[in-house]
Design a protein around this nucleic acid. Structure first.
Length: 413
DNA sequence: CTTCCACGGGAACACTGGGGTG
DNA sequence: CACCCCAGTGTTCCCGTGGAAG
């Protein structure tokens, strides 16, 4: 930077260093559906065996697929679906595979609407009665002879909002004259059928396929497979893939996690202008993924939840760890008043706390303190200081920056 | 055995953003 | 245009309940 010659040298040196280590990083994204799925041939075969009857013009049984996150459920289902459609064309059998992620499409109305839209029906986002949408979809589907396979990913997300949709879908075949429907439900909640209407349960679970978690060796194979396409030759240190696999195996064999880890490691290496991906980068990536996730979650929390979290942060600071709902609620009320935000009822705040617990930001366990009643003992499960910083980025919470909660003595308001 | 605090299920309500109809 | 219907979401109200300290 000091004189001209070094600058020019610097430019070339830099340019040499910035070798793109990725060949195609899209391959490492979880949205990518590979053609070859290592260690899943058994499941692929099982699913294909069920669905093959579609090619013979019969209605395949409904299938329920179980397995934890990142065990390849979605990939297998999509893959087999594609194959089925392709083969169907060759044999002149008309089959449609519709993939729906119920985490996004999570209400009866929206589910039926997006199904109907697959058949070029115009359905408004809201407004219609649900059964009208249902009829619309049914008619569209029944307009020609075909077999429709509906893949419902994360189907457990749909259930608490009313399993009537599932009930209707499982019985739709009785109403159809030309077309036939079969359902593939995908869930990572093993107990999910317990809460299901028994009729839906038996019909949806005609066939069940279990996806066991991958072990470290299998994850390694998967990573190796994808790394071949994703990275340039020989840019990975030998230990990188085993390390990613080991980390992910600890998290109940989540392959998605492993792929993220590998991709982020690569990106970090690239950013550091390294020519190879080192073990070091994997360790950094592991940390980065976790903090990114937390920051992202906290940032996008609704204001009320942020306030609740903030009271936990402030109190947790002074009473080393555990505090009860009552204490947190008092502080919360105070802060609401200070910045002029509606005060929610304690009932609601309890729910917000439980939500934060679900997100892994808090730990809330119910304890009975005998004579002193029952409460939730709350402790933070994320670093206090950084959480605090993220919270105060919200302009509505800004005024509270200097707020120190009165020490735990008397708080009657 | 009583007593206490808050958990958590369920009903009811308010509100939003969109219909269709006279 | 006014008006009512519809699904979905967030909230409040009411209340039965758990369970160990006292």
């Amino acid at each position: 930077m000091d004189n001209e010659t070094t600058t020019i040298k610097g430019i070339f040196a830099d340019m040499l260093k910035i070798v793109n280590i990725f060949e195609n990083r899209e391959v490492l994204r979880s949205t990518y559906t590979p053609d070859y799925l290592p260690h899943r041939s058994e499941q692929v075969k099982a699913l294909a065996t069920v669905l093959v009857s579609a090619l013979r013009g019969e209605t395949p049984s409904n299938v329920l697929i179980y397995g934890k996150t990142g065990t390849g459920k979605t990939a297998v289902a999509k893959h087999v679906g594609q194959e089925l459609e392709r083969t169907g064309e060759l044999y002149g059998v008309s089959s449609v595979v519709i993939y729906i992620n119920c985490e996004v499409v999570d209400t009866q109305y929206r589910l039926l609407a997006s199904l109907a839209r697959h058949f070029e029906k115009e359905i408004p986002m809201t407004g219609w009665p649900t059964d009208q949408v249902y009829t619309e979809f049914k008619n569209a589907l029944d307009s020609s002879r075909r077999i429709a396979i509906i893949i419902l990913d994360e189907v457990d997300k749909l259930v608490d909002k009313g399993d009537d949709v599932l009930y209707n879908l499982t019985r739709i075949n009785a109403d159809l004259k030309k077309a036939k429907v079969s359902l593939i439900g995908i869930t990572n909640d093993l107990k999910f059928t317990e809460f299901l209407d028994p009729r839906v349960k038996s019909s949806l679970g005609e066939e069940e396929i279990i996806f066991p978690p991958y072990d470290a060796n299998q994850i390694r194979d998967i990573l190796q497979e994808r790394a071949k396409m994703a990275f340039k030759q020989a840019v990975l240190e030998e230990t990188v893939i085993p390390l990613c696999a080991a980390y992910a195996a600890q998290e109940h064999g989540d392959a998605r996690r492993a792929l993220d880890l590998l991709r982020v490691s690569g990106e970090l290496a690239e950013r550091a202008k390294a020519t190879r991906v080192l073990e070091e980068h994997v360790k950094q990536a592991q940390e980065k993924i976790e903090t990114d996730r937390i920051v992202e979650v906290v940032k996008t929390l609704p204001t009320q939840s942020k306030l609740v979290l903030l009271s936990a942060v402030l109190l947790g600071h002074q009473s080393d760890g555990n505090l009860t709902t009552g204490e947190a609620y008092n502080i919360y009320k105070q802060m609401c008043r200070m910045i002029g935000i509606d005060i929610l009822t304690q009932r609601r705040v309890t729910d917000l706390i439980s939500e934060l617990d679900m997100l892994g930001i808090l730990n809330a366990t119910i304890v009975s303190k005998g004579r002193y009643g029952r409460t939730k003992e709350i402790s933070l499960s994320v670093p206090t200081d950084s959480t605090r910083k993220v919270l105060f980025e919200d302009y509505r919470l800004k005024p509270l920056e200097g707020f120190i909660p009165p020490s735990q003595s008397k708080l009657y308001i």
